[in-house]
Design a protein around this nucleic acid. Structure first.
Length: 709
RNA sequence: GCCCGCUUGGUGGAAUUGGUAGACACACAGGACUUAAAAUCCUGAGGCUCGAAAGAGCCGUGCCGGUUCGAGUCCGGCAGCGGGCACCA
């Protein structure tokens, strides 16, 4: 329960004990709520991760851990003095270590376990203990500090493998109702928590796994449980086996006896979708006294929200609306009550991509359109969605396949997780957050308030957030520099998967570059008005300087194309910078013949086309100035001529014993012997050899000559 | 505690996937233009040593070691930073 947003939250939406949106510490509350059964898909969601080869490894791992598959066994311990044939006569636990059953010395159940509640009814002390456990914090720090504590219920369980062995049943504060069955057997020798507990309550510690280098007569467990592999001993029919074999054999024996069986469980829990909020899709259910929870008939869907609601008090406005929730039961016609919870927002984002294939359709999704468009070829989003949106969507798509709405399993074939924009945060002397524009940086690195001159504490660079005010509003950037500059800076600064820092100096630099591009285009057109004419087919010959310009143009096209395909936008930007620098160096008096002009036109056209994706407005403006009658955005991406991308000369590094001594110019793909001779002729190489004869010469064509002496 | 990732100049980052480390940009310094400033243009720069200079030598991609003719890139160990999960039985 999020006490600020006044709603419940899903497990995935609780980050470090706090609500994902409000940041308030969550509370526990007992409520009747709606869940979607994502756990029924746990295995296939996990399995299919392997096939998502265009997803980042990191995200797949996070989902894998979140689903959290563990293999082990259920064990149904008989409770003494009860009928073992009935469910309440048994205590069922989950364990990943059935191989250590012979080391069992106690049983423990969660404070929320039915047995604990039963004990609480009989014994006020048990009730008091349970209340204490519930009052304890759930934060990481609180758990860390908490001692392992238990309450002996007086109940006893029979060991499934050891005749007459009785195990006391405790209520323990470290057992979670949400995982497994909410009950465990304690094997202190091989589990640290169980050991801590056993030492506190004086329970026996029997080692059953023997480390390879230990003597069974002397091996003992002190304060540290032994959790590694070894050979099983003190364990009757399991003796001498290794851990894996013993797990299998114990599991099989349990099944044989009817006291349990091997099983697989998941950490993933069902998705809690109820929200006590107005802003969401109503959950289409009607509660009837006699019929129970009845789905709203299809003909009445969708259930629409009322417009006349008030937000003058906390809680869900739907709940206190005078009429909306009062309806008749679709089944028996008696007066009934509409469900006032709405769906979590993540429900909507779990299938929008299917709807977007045919947004105007009368039905929720059109199968033909979905089949045509999906899966999404390239999905882009922040890592913060790794286990919320991206797991829910995968689940929803599979569920929609089962309901016949789609035919695919996975919604997103390729995933790219981009980084976030960071900014320093600022606090004044009272500890209040300040906006960047309220802060003035001094040359000595200190910061003061723009108006009051009071000193300001500069915090670390972190994700921009409204609450910390470390934001730069896009409107302000666009007003000052224009959208092209903002886009260019974001592209140029860092690779997109990495977080980037927003700096004014960086934006300033990007802005200067936009001016520079315009100046280059303008000055060229001023010197050569013919550049605005249609150029026609290229001349058959180009003078050397024109050819050099064409090479620069085509090399840049090749580089930018490649880097964009790899999502290395910052490298593409660097190539464009380099190209612009090269253009700026072309003298107005040069390249005056027909071939020169043609090369100039090609260069400017290409420049405009290459900046198009990053600076669309400026690119279009330059394009038009160059006399084009059609839009740049409708023009094909330039193609690099392979003959112009590769030089006919190669700069080859010459090393002596792996150390660079010279660089030489050689014809491309020249003979190895030619390269060797040229390398050995170098003065610096001779000097480094100190008269010694080369033992071996390694030649990597067009790249390196390494002389080993 | 468990699982991942990262570590390159003053800064953001490049590096053809084992072949010239520091592309490109930001910041900085010097110069030109200007009465002056801004803008613009030119020049410089990883560190250390020697040299008036041209230049030369050595060191250098977190640290230690290995493989290789050659390592930022591969392998082993360590450290630091960041992220995810967590009384998960």
């Amino acid at each position: 329960w999020d006490p600020v947003d006044h709603t419940v939250l899903a497990n995935e939406q609780v980050i470090d004990g706090k609500g994902w949106r409000s940041g308030a510490p969550v509370e526990k509350k007992k409520l009747s709520q709606w869940f979607l059964k994502i756990t029924a898909y746990a295995d296939e969601l996990l399995d299919a991760l392997k096939g998502l080869d265009r997803w980042p490894e990191k995200v797949r791992l996070m989902q894998e851990n979140w689903i959290g598959k563990s293999t082990g066994a259920y064990v149904r311990f008989k409770l003494l003095g009860r009928d073992a044939g009935k469910p309440e006569g048994r205590l069922t636990i989950f364990t990943t270590r059935p191989d250590t059953l012979f080391g069992a010395s106690f049983m423990a159940v969660s404070p929320d376990h039915p047995l604990a509640e039963e004990a609480a009814k009989k014994d006020p002390k048990a009730a008091a203990f349970i209340a204490e456990c519930r009052a304890a914090g759930t934060s990481e720090a609180a758990i860390e500090a908490q001692e392992k504590r238990g309450f002996n219920t007086g109940l006893e369980a029979a060991h499934p493998f050891i005749k007459d062995k009785r195990l006391p049943v405790y209520i323990a504060n470290f057992v979670l109702m949400e995982y497994g069955t909410g009950a465990i057997f304690g094997c202190p020798a091989h589990d640290q928590r169980d050991l801590d507990f056993a030492r506190k309550y004086g329970l026996t510690v029997t080692p059953v796994v023997l480390p390879a280098d230990e003597d069974p007569k002397t091996f003992a467990v002190g304060d540290v449980a032994y959790t590694e592999d070894g050979s099983i001993y003190n364990s009757d029919f399991l003796n001498g086996l290794d851990v894996e074999e013993a797990k299998r054999k114990a599991g099989a024996r349990l099944k044989e006896q009817g006291d349990g069986e091997p099983t697989t469980i998941f950490r993933l829990r069902d998705w809690l979708v109820s929200r006590q909020r107005y802003w969401g899709c109503p959950i289409p259910i009607i509660h009837c006294e006699t019929c129970g929870a009845v789905p709203v008939p299809k003909s009445d869907l969708p259930v629409l929200l009322p417009d006349d609601v008030t937000f003058d008090q906390p809680g869900n406005p739907l709940d206190r609306h005078p009429t909306w929730k009062h309806v008749n039961c679709p089944r028996c016609g008696a007066s009934a009550r509409r469900e006032t919870d709405t769906f979590d927002t993540f429900v909507d984002s779990s299938w929008y991509f299917a709807r977007f294939c045919s947004p105007r359709a009368e039905v929720p999704v059109e199968k033909d359109a979905v089949d045509y468009w999906l899966p999404v070829d390239q999905y882009i989003g922040g890592v913060e969605h790794a286990i919320l949106h991206l797991l829910y969507s995968r689940f929803f798509t599979r569920a929609m396949k089962r309901t016949g709405h789609v035919t695919l399993d996975e919604p997103f074939a390729g995933l790219f997780t981009q980084g976030m924009v960071l900014h320093e945060s600022y606090k004044d002397h009272e500890g209040k957050w300040l906006y960047p524009e309220e802060v003035e940086k001094r040359a000595d690195g200190s910061a003061v308030h723009v108006k009051s001159g009071q000193p300001i504490e500069v915090g670390r660079k972190e994700v921009m957030s409204k609450s910390k005010k470390n934001v730069v509003p896009p409107a302000r950037i666009i007003e000052t520099y224009g959208a092209d500059t903002a886009r260019w800076f974001v592209m140029s600064d860092s690779p997109p998967e990495r977080d980037m820092e927003w700096t004014d100096a960086g934006v300033e630099g990007a802005w200067r570059f936009t001016q520079r591009l315009w100046r280059i285009a303008e000055s060229w057109i001023e010197s050569f008005p013919a550049l605005t004419d249609e150029m026609g087919a290229p001349p058959s010959n180009f003078a050397p300087d024109a050819l050099a310009l064409r090479r620069a143009t085509h090399k840049t096209v090749a580089q930018v194309t490649e880097t964009i395909e790899k999502f290395s936008f910052n490298s593409g930007v660097a190539a464009i910078y380099k190209f612009a620098n090269a253009l700026a160096e072309v003298k107005p008096e040069a390249l005056r013949d027909a071939g020169g002009l043609w090369a100039r036109k090609e260069a400017l056209d290409t420049l405009a086309l290459l900046i198009g994706p990053m600076m669309p407005h400026l690119a279009e403006e330059i394009w038009q100035t160059l006399g084009h009658k059609t839009l740049l955005v409708e023009t094909a991406w330039p193609q690099a001529d392979p003959n112009l991308v590769i030089d006919d000369q190669a700069t080859v590094a010459v090393q002596v014993n792996g150390k660079l001594r010279a660089t030489i110019q050689l014809p491309r793909d020249c003979d190895k012997a030619v390269a060797e001779k040229a390398a050995l002729d170098e003065v610096a190489v001779q000097r480094a050899l100190e008269g010694k004869a080369p033992k071996k010469i390694v030649v990597v064509p067009n790249r390196i000559v390494n002389i080993v002496a």
